[in-house]
Design a protein around this nucleic acid. Structure first.
Lengths: 342, 342
DNA sequence: TTGCTTGACAAAAACGTTTTTGTCAAAAAA
DNA sequence: TTTTTTGACAAAAACGTTTTTGTCAAGCAA
C-alpha cells in the first residue's frame, strides 16, 4: 500500500497526498480531511525508509550505552529508566531510539564506533551519557554537526546542551548532614574519577568540609567502579586505618551496600557505630537493614527532559545553550546514619 | 560523498561499485580490491536510508520494552543486560537495535503500538520479551511475516523461536533444597501470573512438593509484581497465618529482599527461623545480610544468544523451530536458608 | 567459421517518499 | 479591462542506494 495507490484511489496526485498528510498549507482543508480519512480507511502507512531518504532525516535518536565492569558485560541498570523516559517523549513525535553499545571501555575503539555511528547517517540526534571530565565525543558530534544532549556535564569551551543531576549539591547535602550529626572523620567512596559526576561529588564533599573549617584528606577520597564489590573493598581499606572513618558517603546505593557489608564484617553497627549514606534511592534502599539514607534521583524524569530537549533541538526551536537542566536532589533520611560515636 | 562520486572517481559505473562493495561474484577480484581501497581512502560510507530503501531492509531489530510498576515509569533493569547482549551480536553484522517502549500496561494500546511498529516497516526482526501465557504479539508478528525471537516461552500451536531460562527446573531445585533442609511449609512468592515464567516456576515448585508426596496449597502460592514492595507485602500476609511458612521461594532477588525485610520485622532470624531463596543472583545478593541464596541467571549471555538467533533467522539459515534454547540454571548457596526450625 | 557460453562490467529500473517547480483558474488590485 | 496575486493542485526532480537487465569481448565447442 504505497502513496501511489492511495493517490490513485483518491484521484489526486502523489504530491498533494503527501502534502496533505504532512499538514502543509497549500492543500485545502476539505482535501486534507478526505486524504487523511481515506489513508486511515485503507491502512496506509508511509514507508519509513523512503521517508528517511526523501526527507533526509533518519527519524532516530542514537545512544551508545557504556558497558561497565571488568568483563564489559554489565550495563548500568540506570539506563533502562533513562531510555524509558527518552522514548516516552520522542515516540509520539515519530522518532525512535537507536541503541548501540560499547562492549568494553577502550578509548580508540569507542571513538571509532562513535564516529561511525554519527557519520554513518544512522541518526538525527544523539544522547551522550556518562560524560567524562574531558569528553572527546562532544567534539566528534560537533564536527559532524549532529545535535546532541549530554546526560552529565563536562569541560567544554563552547556551550552544549546538558541535563544533569546536581551532584555537587547532593554530596554537599549528605556531608553536611553527617557533620551536623557530629561526624568529623567522613570518607568519600566515589565513582571512577574520569567521570565528571565523580568530580562534582568530590567538590560538594570538599566544600561541605571546608565550610566547617575542615580540610579534606585526599587519602579519604577513594574511587572505584559503581558496584557493591568496589564499595566493599574501598570501605574495608578505610576501616583498617587508625583513626578510622565514622561515616561514609557513597557514590551509589550499590557501593553503599558494599560498604555496609564491610562495616558489618568489621563488627560495626550501622547507624550507630558507623554511618553510611548512599545515592540513587534504589527500590531496595527502603527495605534493607537498616533502611538506607540516600538521595533521590529521578532518572526516568530526566530521560523525559532529555527527549524533549532533543526534539526541540532537532526542530531548531532552541539552541544548545538553552538546555541546561540541573535536577535538584533531595535527601531521603532513613536509618543508616546517626550521631557520631564518642 | 555518495556512491556516484566514488564511481566517477574510479571511472567505474555505480552498479559495479555497489556490487564490488557488497561482495558479489560478478566483479573481478582486482576491481573489487581497488574499489574497497578507494572507498576507504576517501571515506565513503553508504547512506543507510538509501540502502534500506534500495534493498528493502531496515537493518534494524526492534524491541518493545515493557514498563513495570503502577506508574509505568520503571523499566526492569534486567533489560539493560539483555539488550547489551543482543547489540553485541548484531552490531558487527551491521544491524542496530531500535527500542520502543510501552508506557504502561494496557492491552489494546500495546497491541496498537506493536502493530504499528511491525507493520510500519521500521524493523526486519523482532525481540519479544516478557512473554505472557497467551501472547497476542506472536500472532501479530506472524501475520506480518516478521521474524522474531521471544525471550520466554508461551502457549502456541505453531513452532516459534524462543530463548528462555529453565524456570521450572530452577524452582524445582530451590524447593527441593528447602525440602532437603527439612522444611515442609514452603511458600511461593511468585511474579504476575499472566507471565509465562510465573507458570513455569509454579510448576517447578509444585512438582518438587509432589515428589515428596506433599500437596501444594494454592493459598501459599502468591503473585505480585517483581519488586521489594510486593515481596514485602506478600511475605507479611503469609507470616500472619498459623501455621506460618518456614521458607519462601521468591521470583526475584528484589522480592526476596522484600520478604527478608518482612521476616525481620516479624522478629525472625533469616537462615535459622526462616529461609528465603531468591532468583537472579543480583550483584547485591552476595553483600546483603545474610548473603542471599539465589539462582544464577546469565542475562547478558542470553541476549547474545537471542542476537545470534535473530541474525540467522533473517538470513534464513535456520527456522524458528531450530531456536529452542533453555538456559540451565544453577543454584548459588549462601546463608539465607538453613535447616527448618523444630 | 559459426554459434554458444562466460566473465566483467554498464545501463536502467526500482524502492517510496519529500521537495521544488509548474500550472491554471479564480479573485483581487490597478 | 488588464494585470497581478492567490489558492489548490499536479508534474517532475531529487534522495542514494540495490537489483535487474543488457552489452560485449573473449574463450570455447561444434
Amino acid at each position: 500500500m504505497s502513496i501511489v495507490l492511495l493517490a490513485k484511489n483518491l484521484g489526486l496526485s502523489i504530491s498533494t497526498v503527501s502534502r496533505a498528510l504532512n499538514g502543509y498549507e497549500d492543500v485545502s482543508a476539505a482535501t486534507r480531511e478526505r486524504v487523511v480519512l481515506r489513508a486511515k480507511a485503507i491502512g496506509y502507512r508511509p514507508n519509513p525508509s523512503a521517508r528517511r531518504l526523501g526527507a533526509g532525516k533518519t527519524l532516530a535518536i542514537g545512544v551508545i550505552l557504556p558497558a561497565t565492569g571488568s568483563t564489559g558485560q554489565a550495563v548500568d541498570s540506570m539506563y533502562s529508566s533513562l531510555l524509558g523516559g527518552v522514548v516516552t517523549e520522542i515516540e509520539p513525535a515519530g522518532y525512535h531510539l537507536l541503541a548501540s553499545m560499547q562492549a568494553k571501555y577502550d578509548d580508540a575503539r569507542e571513538t571509532a564506533l562513535f564516529e561511525n555511528f554519527i557519520r554513518g547517517g544512522w541518526v538525527d540526534g544523539l544522547l551522550i551519557v556518562r560524560t567524562r571530565v574531558h569528553d572527546a565525543r562532544l567534539e566528534l558530534a560537533r564536527a559532524a554537526k549532529m545535535p546532541f544532549v549530554t546526560y552529565g556535564r563536562t569541560e567544554s569551551d563552547q556551550p552544549y546542551a546538558w541535563v544533569d543531576t546536581d551532584n555537587e549539591k547532593a554530596f554537599h547535602l549528605a556531608t553536611t548532614r553527617l557533620l551536623d550529626l557530629g561526624h568529623r572523620r567522613i570518607a568519600l567512596i566515589n565513582g571512577p574519577e574520569e567521570y565528571s559526576f565523580a568530580q562534582f561529588r568530590r567538590r560538594g564533599y570538599v566544600r561541605a568540609l571546608a565550610s566547617r573549617k575542615l580540610k579534606a584528606d585526599p587519602t579519604w577520597m577513594l574511587h572505584g567502579d559503581l558496584t557493591e564489590g568496589a564499595g566493599h573493598e574501598l570501605c574495608r581499606s578505610l576501616l583498617i586505618r587508625r583513626p578510622a572513618p565514622t561515616a561514609f558517603v557513597c557514590a551509589t546505593d550499590s557501593m553503599a551496600f558494599g560498604a555496609i557489608a564491610a562495616c558489618r564484617e568489621a563488627g560495626l553497627s550501622i547507624g550507630s557505630d558507623v554511618s553510611v549514606i548512599g545515592y540513587g534511592n534504589s527500590s531496595l534502599s527502603a527495605f534493607c537493614d537498616p533502611p538506607l539514607t540516600t538521595m533521590e534521583h529521578q532518572v526516568f524524569e530526566n530521560g523525559r527532559y532529555v527527549g524533549r530537549a532533543l526534539l526541540q533541538l532537532l526542530r531548531k526551536e532552541i539552541q544548545p545553550v538553552d538546555v541546561h537542566y540541573l535536577e535538584p536532589v533531595v535527601l531521603v533520611p532513613r536509618k543508616s546514619d546517626g550521631p557520631a560515636p564518642q
